[in-house]
């Protein structure tokens, strides 16, 4: 099932792009990444809107939680009245969840298509569609680009650094700005997750084929363009960032709200123009 639905189509598409771009596997991965991101636009847009909505609802949710903390039934009714449900929170994670099978499929198809071991070459034979034009002439796939062997990790660590930097930057740009009165702890967790994700993907790039790092970098660059294009608020954040202005930080918690962990963050600065 996995092979039929994900791995084989990805592998064939990658190799077909490889033939179209003059046997340049790096370019094929980059174009393929952009195409995959375009296909997943409806999912990412839905997730983004949900995330934005949740962010805007945060102060209201906190207020209701505080007000009805001893009346669970009333609390749930009030939360439902403003359109909040636990399912909508899960929906916000959908784009990220959707990315994982695609990422794993792409990783497998990259190693599959490059076929640097005899076993993977036998498997590639079975993966290629019979109507693929002149497939025999493609073997072996050229997996070298500049100093890179795309089947192996980057020996000079350039790509892992780029993966870390672009992941961090894209997380920073696509995360909706914190609303005034938003839960400080939640905001800090979001920031912490951004750094953790960047470290995680950077670390993965140290271990994995550099072809996958190309996917990460292009994917992050696409995110940085895609999200601001579809959201005026984030477009402003991108332009503010490009102008070198500081992006808004969490607003202080309302009176009476106890910020867990660290003290409340400073108020948003004027740099973030509205």
């Amino acid at each position: 099932m996995w092979n039929t639905l994900i791995l084989y189509p990805f592998t064939n598409a990658l190799l077909f792009l490889y033939t179209l771009v003059g046997n340049n596997f790096t370019l094929a991965i980059a174009i393929f990444t952009v195409l995959v991101r375009l296909i997943t636009v409806p999912f990412t847009m839905a997730g983004q809107k949900n995330q934005q909505r949740m962010s805007e609802m945060q102060p209201k949710i906190k207020e209701i939680q505080e007000k009805y903390k001893d009346q669970p039934e009333k609390l749930n009714a009030e939360l439902a009245a403003i359109g909040f449900s636990p399912f909508s929170m899960v929906g916000g994670c959908l784009p990220m969840l959707l990315q994982f099978p695609i990422m794993i499929g792409l990783y497998q198809s990259i190693t599959h298509a490059m076929a640097v071991t005899p076993l993977s070459l036998v498997d590639l034979y079975h993966a290629i569609y019979p109507f693929f034009p002149n497939f025999d002439k493609l073997i072996p796939v050229n997996s070298h680009f500049l100093w890179l062997n795309l089947a192996l990790p980057d020996p000079f660590y350039v790509l892992p650094v780029l993966v870390f930097a672009t992941t961090w930057l894209s997380q920073k740009l696509i995360t909706p700005p914190p609303q005034p009165g938003a839960d400080t702890q939640t905001t800090q967790m979001t920031q912490s997750m951004g750094i953790s994700m960047s470290v995680m993907f950077g670390f993965m790039s140290l271990q994995f084929a550099s072809g996958l790092s190309i996917y990460f970098i292009v994917s992050n660059l696409v995110s940085m363009v895609q999200y601001p294009l579809s959201n005026a608020q984030q477009r402003k954040r991108l332009f503010a960032f490009l102008r070198g202005e500081k992006l808004p930080e969490p607003a202080p918690a309302p009176k009476g709200q106890k910020a867990l962990g660290k003290p409340p963050a400073k108020p948003a600065k004027a740099g973030a123009k509205k």
Binding site: Q185, M189, S192, M193, S196, M197, M200, L260, G261
Partner: peptide
């Protein structure tokens, strides 16, 4: 809490 979430992520 923050440390816990970081540990879970790791």
């Amino acid at each position: 809490m923050k440390k816990t979430s970081f540990a879970i992520l790791l």
